[in-house]
Structures are given as C-alpha cells and as structure tokens.
Design a protein around this nucleic acid. Structure first.
Lengths: 126, 126
DNA sequence: CATAATGTATTAATCATATAATACACCTAA
DNA sequence: TTAGGTGTATTATATGATTAATACATTATG
C-alpha cells in the first residue's frame, strides 16, 4: 500500500488512480474485496473522509460496488475493467501530446526521447 | 495572445509556460521587449499581480531581465534560451513516462499510440 | 515640470481541498 | 444478545495556494 502522493492533485483522486493502476495491470481481480474505508485511511495515513470520497468516486465510475456492511469489491463487469487500462493510456498520451505540440518537435525526435526514457526506467523494475 | 488556461495549474505558471513555448520555437528573440505587467494582465484578462508573479518567476529563472521603468526584455543569454526547449521536452517526457510506467505497457505499443496521436494532430496545424 | 506608465511591495479576500468531529443505520460474528 | 465493524452523511474547521485590491517609489516622456 505504497502511494507517493504529490501536492498537485487532490489526494482522493490519487487514491482512485492507485486503484485504477492496480486494475490495469491485473493486480485486482473482479469481485475482489478491497480494504474498508477506515482500513484504507489507516494504511495510507489519510482522513477516513478522504478515503470515503475516493471510494465514492470509484463507485460512481462503476469500478467498485458495495453490499451492506461489507467492504467494497471490485466490479465483476469485465467490460468496465477492460476499459481502465486503455483509458489510463489514452489519457496520458493525450496530455503528453497536448503539452509537446506547442514546441514543434519532429515526431521521430519525440519518439526517441520517449523510448530512451521509458526503456531506461525498465532497470528500476528489475 | 491566446492562452487557454486550465483549472489545474496556477495561472501564473501557465503564463510562464506560455512564454517558454514562445522562446522554444523562436518566436521571442534575445533582448526583445515583452508587454508590461499591466499590459499583459489586460490582454490575458488576469490580475496584474498574477502577471507580476509570472514575470518574477521568469526573472528568477533568468529568462527575462528588467531595467528601471521599462517593460522587461527577453534575456540575451543564448545559453539560457537554448535550454528552454530541451527543458520543456524533458519535463514532458518525464511526466509522461512516469505516468504510464505503472501500467506496464510494451514500449512499441506506447510509441505507436504517441505517433498516431501526434501525427493526427498535425492536421489541426494546417 | 507633471502626467502617466513602469516595476515593486503589502495586505486582504477567495477558493478548493483536506481534515476533523460526530452521528446514524445496518449487520456480522462471537 | 451485543460489541464491534461496516458504509454513509453532515457540519465545522484548518490550511495552503491563488488571486485581488491597493499603495508606493521611480522614471520616461511630452
């Protein structure tokens, strides 16, 4: 449960993203139970209300569901889950392209920069 | 003087970025005068203090300099100017790679996504 | 000289976010 | 049965960043 919060984005959104990443890489399975609001708040050292807000957001997006008096669970809707990875990717690509478009960089130079940086970071995973 | 402000980042930083982009693509030349704080505030419909803060930031980064009672000017230090483009690029690439690393996407898939999106946007420039 | 424009500084107000403190209804499990 | 754990909701407070309002000193320029 390691999350590196930045100061820029709201904490509750960073929590949502944390779960989306877990879903995208398959670490969270359909129907799997996730920590209760209070439990998560303890682990992440945030206020229970912040955890609640994150879960509420995820519920509205259909990523989790909640049965009475049970910790929420990952949705069993495969279609919804399948979209998560693509959405994260598309969102990142869109933001990136938007931010570099104004610089007028040749596409090949841009791709090289990404390739070098991305493969360099592979080391850290090993 | 068209700037599309987003709600996420501080306006004064978006102004700084606006000028950096102009510098990066060579639209602003060394020694060139830029609008006064009040003038810029008028054009961009922001508070003069916001313009002041942006200019102060640029001054601290060595991008502009100010002589008494004259609008600030772009620095004549070519070295400083030359770095701007690279810094914008590296910064964007770093952020992008960081955000997609957690998704474990194959590098070629990632590059394809960027290529498609980036070249698709070329149309809008024409 | 004097008006107006410049940069600069100080203080106040605003705003979103996050946290805090409680409370409530429900249910599980010992 | 009951003690403790669920989710949920409400209200208040704190905090930091941002923006706004205002004032000040300087100087170019007509």
């Amino acid at each position: 449960m390691n999350v590196n919060f930045n100061n820029r984005d709201p904490v509750y959104l960073q929590i949502v993203r944390y779960f989306k990443e877990k879903i995208a890489v398959g670490e969270l399975m359909p129907g799997e139970e996730i920590p209760s609001r209070r439990e998560l708040a303890n682990r992440m050292k945030v206020n229970p209300n912040t955890a609640q807000r994150a879960y509420k957001e995820m519920e509205e997006q259909g990523l989790i569901y909640t049965e009475k008096n049970h910790p929420s669970k990952i949705t069993t809707d495969r279609k919804t889950l399948g979209k998560v990875r693509d959405e994260l990717l598309v969102e990142a690509v869109d933001m990136f392209v938007t931010s570099v478009r104004s610089i007028n960089v040749p596409v090949e130079e841009l791709l090289d920069l990404v390739r070098v940086k991305y493969t360099a970071n592979d080391d850290k995973e090993a």
